[in-house]
């Protein structure tokens, strides 16, 4: 996962808890949504939380605990919500791997009113992939026409094509699920 995206994952998770959440529980939530696709230790998590607090995206309050040290409870601010919304609707990164993680995150925190905009992002992304497939196909034809022995390059092109094909099937799959309304856990302001 791109470092930037971890910040938004944290912000999104806090946004989904209007009552606030403390650091320990937050780490558990991060692990629950990530299926171990990114690793986040406490040090890193607290650095992100400090950063988000100092930029005004989070509010922090002390929670008094009997017989134990107080702990910090984090809540999202208006500003934080705006930052999160802006990110949710910004174009996806073109590279395949960041895209998959990034889109999954966006889907997790998506408000019901934002589905159409994300479908728009998916459409743009599909266009990028199809253009990539078109380049692969043209390259294949050029090599074949040049009459060179192309066994090895053909295998490389096969691999590239298989990956893009898988990415497109996944986008189609996400789009179908979105249209059926399976997403949108983050309590949006529009309600």
């Amino acid at each position: 996962m791109k470092p930037g995206n971890v910040q938004f994952a944290v912000l999104g998770l806090i946004a989904s808890k209007p009552e606030g959440i403390h650091g320990y529980a937050l780490k558990g939530e991060c692990e629950a949504i990530s299926d171990a696709f990114w690793s986040l230790n406490y040090g890193k998590l607290y650095r992100i939380l400090d950063l988000l607090e100092s930029s005004g995206e989070l509010d922090v309050a002390d929670q008094i605990q009997q017989g134990r040290p107080n702990r910090k409870v984090y809540r999202i601010t208006e500003r934080g919500r705006r930052t999160l919304d802006d990110w949710l609707l910004s174009p996806l990164t073109g590279e395949a791997q960041p895209l998959r993680d990034e889109l999954v995150l966006k889907l997790l925190f998506l408000g019901a009113g934002q589905v159409n905009k994300v479908c728009e992002l998916i459409k743009q992304q599909r266009g990028i992939y199809l253009t990539r497939l078109a380049r692969i196909s043209r390259r294949r034809r050029r090599l074949a026409k040049a009459g060179v022995d192309m066994k090895a390059s053909e295998l490389v092109l096969d691999g590239a094509e298989m990956r893009v094909r898988a990415d497109i099937s996944w986008l189609d799959h996400v789009e179908r699920a979105l249209i059926k309304g399976h997403f949108g856990s983050y309590p949006s302001k529009q309600k």
Binding site: L130, A134, R135, R138, A160
Partner: peptide
């Protein structure tokens, strides 16, 4: 729903 032109000239894959 979508109309994609693949008139991309031969660039690297």
């Amino acid at each position: 729903e979508d109309d994609i032109s693949l008139d991309c000239e031969a660039r690297a894959v």
